[in-house]
Design a protein around this nucleic acid. Structure first.
Length: 274
DNA sequence: AACACCGCCTGAGCGC
DNA sequence: TGCGCTCAGGCGGTGT
């Protein structure tokens, strides 16, 4: 499940693209692609003929920015993969590849997404990217105590539901929400507005450290996540609560409990989290 | 306005 | 072996 650490790992592994020119593009499924006009994607919308100058990320969204400001925003959804195949390198899986780009050095970029929860947004300018990202909260990798406290203030939702809201905080999904709340010793069911200031500080720190630790481990590979070079992550071996309902807490030994918050499976420890 | 909930989609894992 | 069922989840749209 690509969340912020997985998308950041993809961004870093796509760095060979910067400074290169796209020479051709093919779109095999038009419905994964949203264009500025709502019409058919033209080659130029897919950045054909343009050099890539920057790879940006906000939350779970990745932006490939071309020299004239045109931008390809990629959201990986549940099962999306961006792969950068070197000249002559064969893809391990060629099913569900919805779009592909030929690069001037002979490499190929592919977008593959079996479940199609992800997608591509073709934006005409950097201003359009800024407008799109204005709807997202601050990036979770750098979230401050003040930003988190601002989002929590006046919110009667469960704190976990707030963490999953990309408009409040960008980048946290189900895995890292549970892991961060465990690290901060806060129960996911607590009302956001009832989280005390010192708990907000602790949670902001836990979010940053949980995400940074996962990035260092190359992200979490639960089923099929790989970075653009095809490498799996190792962060899944570090999960303290996610996917461990019914198993003993690593800190206190109590059986981890499972509930549902915001339509998401939620695992927590009744001994450690209050 | 703020929030809850549905449905999209595929493949893994399960029981029979 | 194979079939049918359930589950997983991000997010846009709709309902309260």
């Amino acid at each position: 499940m690509p969340e912020l650490p997985e998308v950041e790992s993809v961004r870093v592994s796509l760095r060979p693209l910067v400074g290169r020119r796209i020479v051709a593009a093919s779109l095999h499924r038009a419905d994964v692609c949203i264009t500025p006009t709502g019409g058919r994607a033209r080659q130029v919308d897919l950045l054909v003929g343009l050099s890539i100058v920057e790879l940006r990320r906000r939350g779970k969204q990745l932006a490939i920015v071309a020299e004239d400001g045109r931008t390809l925003v990629v959201h990986l959804g549940m099962s999306g993969q961006l792969r950068l195949l070197r000249r002559g390198e064969d893809p391990t899986q060629r099913d569900h590849v919805h779009a592909a780009w030929s690069i001037d050095d002979g490499s190929q970029l592919t977008f593959r997404d079996p479940r199609r929860f992800g997608g591509l947004w073709l934006l005409p300018s950097r201003a359009a990217l800024d407008a799109r990202w204005a709807g997202l909260g601050p990036d979770a990798l750098d979230i401050t105590t003040e930003e988190l406290a601002d989002a929590a203030r006046g919110s009667r939702r469960a704190i976990k539901a707030l963490l999953l809201d990309q408009g409040a905080l960008a980048g946290v999904g189900n895995i890292y929400a549970d892991e961060s709340l465990f690290a901060a010793r806060i129960r996911p069911t607590r009302f956001a507005h009832r989280i005390r200031p010192e708990e907000c500080r602790c949670l902001a720190t836990a979010i940053r450290e949980t995400l940074r630790g996962a990035i260092r481990a190359g992200g979490s590979t639960l089923r099929d996540y790989v970075n653009a070079a095809g490498r799996s992550g190792e962060a899944q071996h570090r999960h303290a609560v996610y996917g461990r309902a019914g198993e003993p807490c690593m800190a206190c030994g109590k059986t981890l409990r499972c509930t549902t918050i915001a339509q998401r499976t939620t695992v927590f420890c009744t001994g450690c989290q209050h």
